[in-house]
């Protein structure tokens, strides 16, 4: 072995990027949102997040070690990320056993049953969230009110902006400023648009994601909801409310941009973003669920392979 030259095809250098760097980059981008959720939901947010991360990593380890019989890759950060994204999509008073089920659904069904990271069709955290929403609709749709720092399971609950919207109680809404900062009821990571946008700027800066998906979602929702608002302002809320409420920010910035389940070409990403925007607004305004973001992303995840095969990147010298 001594002093034998290595021979390999070019290129001979690598940029040093890695899967774990990207995963931890997203986690760093989620820190502001987590701090805000600690500030508004206190102990509950901490317990739920810790539990979800623990269960996701545990299930990933067990499945890789004993079912797939390969070296566990829990250190790459993707299981931690799934756990954090899953908790950010649930109320902060969710019991731990439900979180454990959600984590199993996310990791086991959403990711590992397809062969692990890179092979899944649907966003794992979203799979877990939808699984819980359908299985435990009561627990999943009662959100604690903000400012109960030491409360967990005993927190008082209240309505969210989107529930108010569905009920037509447009006058009981919090101010846009409160919504922007996150002072409203909702899942623990989705409330503060400001913190999530900070995360988005960080990810743009680190080149973890490109602008195409979030911006196309925001633009589509804004235009669609804006037109409906202009048609009938008393029934349909203003487009700003739509952008700042529910899982819009979290979904558009962190869930829809999941590498594995989003299209690869830029024009494909825009089509995907527009699809999510339209589906979300349709579900929110005309569907029976108050929130449509998860379902919209989930459906578009399923369309992604089709988008990938039709929307090719802009080819050099092509039209």
């Amino acid at each position: 072995m001594e002093n034998k030259l290595y021979v390999s095809p070019s290129p001979h250098i690598h940029g040093g990027d890695s899967i774990s760097k990207n995963m931890y980059g997203v986690l760093i981008a989620l820190v502001p949102a987590f701090l805000v959720s600690l500030y508004f939901f206190g102990l509950g947010a901490l317990i739920v997040t810790a539990a979800a991360v623990f269960f996701c990593v545990l299930f990933e380890y067990l499945i890789q070690k004993f079912l797939m019989k390969k070296e566990p890759t829990i250190c790459d950060g993707s299981a931690i990320l799934t756990g954090v994204l899953l908790t950010f999509n649930v109320p902060s008073n969710l019991p731990i056993w439900i979180i454990a089920i959600g984590s199993l659904a996310a990791i086991g069904i959403g990711k590992m049953s397809f062969g692990g990271l890179g092979n899944n069709i649907f966003n794992p955290a979203l799979t877990g969230r939808i699984f819980l929403l359908i299985s435990f609709p009561a627990q999943m749709t009662t959100w604690p009110e903000v400012g109960q720092l030491t409360a967990y399971a005993d927190a008082t609950t209240g309505a969210t902006v989107l529930t108010l919207m569905k009920e037509g109680a447009l006058d009981k809404m919090p101010t846009l400023c409160d919504m922007f900062l996150g002072k409203m009821g909702g899942s623990l990571g989705e409330v503060s648009a400001l913190a999530l946008l900070l995360g988005m700027v960080y990810m743009f800066w680190k080149k973890i994601i490109t602008w195409h998906i979030p911006v196309s979602i925001f633009a589509t929702v804004f235009v669609f909801a804006g037109i409906m608002h202009l048609i009938n302002p008393t029934v349909y809320a203003s487009p700003f409310v739509h952008l700042l409420s529910g899982g819009m920010m979290l979904g558009a910035i962190f869930m829809a941009t999941d590498y594995v389940t989003s299209p690869m070409s830029k024009n494909g990403m825009i089509v995907y973003g527009i699809g999510i925007g339209i589906l979300t607004t349709v579900i929110r305004l005309f569907g029976s669920y108050p929130e449509g973001m998860s379902f919209a992303i989930f459906i578009m995840n399923g369309v992604t392979p089709l988008i990938n095969s039709y929307m090719k990147p802009k080819h050099f010298g092509g039209k």
Partner: peptide, 26 residues
Amino acid sequence: EESVRKPMQDCIRCAKCVNVCPMGLN
């Protein structure tokens, strides 16, 4: 240290190769 390639992992479809390809390929 500079010569040895790192082990290959599964594609996560991050599209970074698409973004850098100067010929606009995937």
